[in-house]
Amino acid sequence: MKRRASIIGGVAAIAGSFVVFVIPFIFIILMAFKDKPQSALRDFSWPQGFHLWDNLVQVVTTRNWMMITAFINSALITVISVTLLVVLAAMVGFVLARRKTRMNGLIEFLILAGLMIPPAVVPTIWLMQGLKLFGTLHGMILIEVAYNLPFSIILYRAFVATIPRDLDEAAIIDGARPLDVFFRIILPMLWPVTVTNIVVQSVGIFNDFTNPLYYLPGNQNATVQLTLYNFQSQYNTSYNLLFTNILLITVPPLIVFLFFNRQIVAGMTAGAVKG
């Protein structure tokens, strides 16, 4: 009786979730298989012929291989800023959790402020121009680091707080020098939360649209999110290419999702609950 109810409920939930959450993705995939005239109809129909490969080639080669440049740029920004985030946030989280000083209150306030306050765009551009960082990849990397530090620090601090201090002290007695305690004892133990950080932050930074829009103008600096505007024009949008492009930039998060589902969920909920 109960079992039947749960099966009926389950089937209804599967059907509902399929319509709401899966069909849009199927639509993207179907569109990516179509040629330009059929895609212009924008309907939910079976592709006439297999055009995915042509579409891919066209998307990749458009505007002087802009897609490739964009993927390289996005990869560089993501990898370098996530590396910096992990190292810097782990250092801050470690000392913040271990050393109780009057500064802690201020630092925690600044972390919360960083999570809430939207960045002041134009003054940032003005400052970056002064520092010769505006429109450069390294400037963009530093921006991503600055904006995402608070979240990473919160994750690390919470984790370090669960590591008993005895371990630090045992290491000190064993002859660890100050930096040894962090690099040889704490950092290796932080591995699980580092994986979480890497996964959550790289998805966020890879998908970032707003910040590159402001701070990284220019075609040679485009990131993948900005390539979507290549195939959109008011009158003559190439929907097949547009959706091939969307499909292409959805692949990296999909891979991450397939391999690190658990870490992402753990990280997002942990960070959220602490924050």
Binding site: M91, V95, G114, A120, P123, A146, Y147, L149, D168
Partner: peptide, 24 residues
Amino acid sequence: PSTYPVWFFLPAAIIYSALFLAPT
């Protein structure tokens, strides 16, 4: 030297202050 060096805050603090706090 401390096991919990305050300078560990420094790199993060510089980037955060320069690119987030100062513009704010």
